[in-house]
Computed example of a mutant assay.
Amino acid sequence: MERVAQRIDLPRSNQEEYLRLHRSVWPEVEATLTRAGIRNYSIFLADEMLFAYFEIDSATSFAHASATIAQDPKTREWWKLTDPLQRRVEGTPDNEQWFRLQEIWHLD
């Protein structure tokens, strides 16, 4: 299993809409995440920062899971609603929305 932590900013002016959307995440989007091998997915909010944590099944990789998710039309439609609400963190690669954090320690 691969653990992934990511962050992005969420301006206060966009928080109400972002939270509204996430109170009812589309079932098709959730199904795509599951199909891609994503498990134990959580998003947290602190001030204007979103922090996401999820795990990827050992049968796949981050790159493969990301590609599977990006190919889904319903997920791309979801991103058209959520991405404009977010503010990318400096240093985020051009082809990614969220900045991936480096894992430095873990305790089971």
Rank of each mutant, 00 (worst) to 15 (best):
M1K: 09
E2K: 11
I8V: 15
D9M: 13
D9T: 11
D9H: 14
R12F: 11
N14H: 13
E17L: 11
E17D: 10
Y18Q: 02
L19F: 06
R23I: 00
V25F: 06
V25C: 03
V25E: 06
W26D: 15
V29Y: 11
T32E: 15
T34K: 15
T34V: 13
R35W: 07
I38W: 08
I38G: 02
F44T: 07
F44M: 09
L45Q: 10
D47T: 06
E48T: 13
E48M: 04
M49L: 11
M49P: 01
L50E: 02
F51L: 13
Y53R: 04
Y53A: 01
F54N: 01
D57V: 09
D57P: 00
S61C: 00
S61D: 04
S61Y: 04
A67F: 05
I69T: 10
I69N: 05
I69E: 06
A70G: 05
A70N: 12
Q71F: 05
D72E: 13
D72T: 07
P73C: 05
T75E: 12
R76V: 02
R76A: 08
W79C: 01
D83V: 13
D83F: 04
Q86T: 06
R87Y: 00
R88E: 06
V89C: 04
E90F: 05
T92N: 06
T92D: 03
T92F: 04
R100Y: 05
R100M: 08
Q102G: 01
Q102F: 01
E103F: 03
D108E: 14
